[in-house]
Amino acid sequence: MKADPAAQRRLLEVANVDAELNRINHRRRSLPELERIGAAEREVRTKQDALVAARTTLDDLRSEVERLENEVDQVRSRQQRDRQMMDSTGSSKQLEDLQHEMSTLSRREAALEDDMLEVMERREAQEADVSHAQQEVNTAESELEDARHARDEALADLESDEAKRLAERESLVADIPQQLLDLYERIRQQRGSGAGYLQGNRCGACRLELDRAALASVREAAADDVVRCEECGAIMVRTKESGQ
C-alpha cells in the first residue's frame, strides 16, 4: 500500500490520541474511588448487620420486660383476691392457707421484680448499643455517599477529557485516506496499537528492534510506501528523525 508521507505522519497523532483514550478507559476502570466505594459498601453492610442484631436483642429484652410485668400483675391480682378473701372468711383453716399463699406470692413478687429490674437495666444498656450502632450506620453511609460523589466527579473529568480527545481524533482522521485509516483501525483492533514512530532501528509500537533484513527493506522502501513491523504488524511511520 502507498500513502502520502504526511498522511502517514498524521497516523502518529491519531495513535497518540488513541493511546490517551486507552489510558482514559483504564483510569475509568481502575479509579481509586471505585475501591473506596467497595470498601464503604462492605462497611455499610457490616454496620447494618450489627444494627439488626442489636435491635433484635433489644426487642427480645423488651418482650422479656413485658412478660415479667404481666407476671407481676398476675401475682398482684392474686394477692388482691386473697386479701379480699381473708377479709371475708370466717374459717381459721382457710385463713391460714391464705396467709401461706400470700407469703409465697410476696416472695414470688420480689423475685419477679428483681428479675425485671435486671432485665430493664440490660434493656437500657441495649438501647444505648442500638443508638451507637445506628450512628455507626449513619457514618458508614455518609462515607459511602462521599465516595460515590468523588467517583462521579472523577468520571465527569474523564468524560470531559474523553470528549476532547474524540473531537481531536475526528479532526485528525478527516485528513487521512480511508484505505490507510481502515488498515490502521484493523491493526489496532487486532494488536492494540495500529501505528508507531520508527526510531532508528526500533518500532515505536512494540519497542522491539528490527533485524538487519527488516531495516534494509525499510531503507529500500519509497517514501510513500506503507511499511509494517514484522513483529507487531503496526504501521511504522518514518520521519526525518527516524534516521532512514
Rank of each mutant, 00 (worst) to 15 (best):
V75L: 06
L105Y: 01
Q84F: 09
M102H: 09
S91N: 03
L98W: 04
S77R: 03
R81E: 03
M85A: 13
S88M: 13
M86E: 08
G90Y: 06
E101M: 11
S103H: 13
R107G: 13
T89M: 08
S103M: 14
L95I: 03
M102S: 12
H100R: 15
Q94I: 10
L95R: 08
G90N: 09
R78P: 00
D87R: 13
M85N: 07
T89E: 07
T104Q: 15
K93D: 12
V75T: 04
E109I: 05
L105M: 09
V75K: 03
D82Q: 04
S88E: 15
D87A: 15
L98N: 01
D97Y: 06
T104G: 11
Q74D: 08
S77C: 01
R81P: 02
S88D: 14
R78T: 03
Q99E: 13
H100P: 01
M86L: 15
E113A: 14
S77Y: 02
L95P: 00
E96L: 12
M86Y: 04
L98Q: 02
R78E: 02
T104Y: 11
L95V: 00
M102E: 09
Q94A: 11
R108W: 03
M85G: 00
H100M: 14
Q74K: 08
Q79T: 05
M85S: 06
M102N: 09
T89N: 05
T104S: 15
Q99L: 13
E109V: 02
Q79F: 06
M86C: 06
R81S: 04
S91E: 05
R108F: 01
S92N: 10
R108I: 06
Q74I: 05
Q84R: 14
S77F: 02
M102L: 12
M86N: 05
G90H: 11
T89H: 06
Q79Y: 00
S88C: 05
L105Q: 08
S88L: 13
D114W: 05
Q79L: 08
R108C: 06
S92Y: 00
R83C: 07
L105H: 04
E113P: 01
T89F: 00
R81D: 02
D82R: 08
A111W: 01
R76P: 01
S92A: 10
M86A: 14
R108D: 07
S106K: 09
T104N: 14
Q80D: 07
D82I: 14
Q94T: 03
S88R: 14
A110N: 11
R107D: 12
R78W: 00
T104W: 08
S92G: 03
A111R: 13
Q79A: 09
S77D: 06
Q79G: 02
R78C: 02
R83N: 11
R83P: 03
L112Y: 10
R78G: 00
M85H: 07
R107F: 05
Q79C: 01
R81K: 07
S103V: 10
D87I: 08
Q80E: 11
S103N: 11
A111D: 14
L98Y: 05
S92D: 13
Q74F: 05
K93V: 08
E113F: 01
D114V: 07
Q79D: 02
S92C: 00
Q99S: 13
S106V: 06
